[in-house]
């Protein structure tokens, strides 16, 4: 079976995939046991599966594994833990910016990427950054507040 080598959360990994077009999401969740990224649509429409590939937000549900070889993948698990969240995650916790939390991965990842280019986002910048992400519980205002708070931390 073909093997693909890349970095995940600063660790070198080598994963096998019978299909070069297998989306990264399945390998993260099933082979590497990283459950942070979620399957929402498989169409790149909702953002629940977001990860960073070489620092940029990518929808892992439509990112073929063959395109990831040699790159560096970062998942939500890399940034912090429940006991030691990073400032973005801490802002989501402080704002209690989740109901079911299924979309939270994408919201946190989009915010991590946003803060790299826009360290102190305004509400409007936060809205734009999350415009491609969906939340069904209606937690929008808390999530936006968390993004702004993260920029002030």
């Amino acid at each position: 079976m073909p093997t693909y080598k890349f970095k995940v959360n600063d660790r070198d990994v080598s994963v096998e995939s019978w299909d070069p077009d297998q989306p990264l999401l399945y390998l993260l969740r099933n082979t590497l046991d990283l459950h942070g990224p979620k399957f929402g649509c498989g169409l790149g429409q909702c953002g629940a599966c977001a990860v960073l590939v070489d620092g940029k937000v990518a929808r892992s549900c439509v990112t073929p594994i063959r395109t990831v070889a040699g790159k560096s993948v970062t998942t939500i698990e890399a940034f912090g833990t429940p006991e030691n969240p990073d400032k973005v995650q801490a802002a989501f916790i402080a704002e209690q910016a989740a109901q079911c939390g299924y979309c939270t991965n994408g919201m946190v990842m989009a915010t991590e990427a946003l803060l790299k280019t826009t360290p102190h986002p305004t509400l409007e910048q936060a809205k734009t950054a999350l415009s491609g992400h969906l939340c069904r519980c209606g937690t929008h205002t808390r999530i936006l507040a968390a993004v702004v708070r993260a920029g002030k931390a």
Binding site: G36, P37, E77, T81, Q89, I93, Q96, A97, A98, N105
Partner: peptide, 8 residues
Amino acid sequence: VPRKSTGR
């Protein structure tokens, strides 16, 4: 929420 915000 801490676990949901950190992927755990």
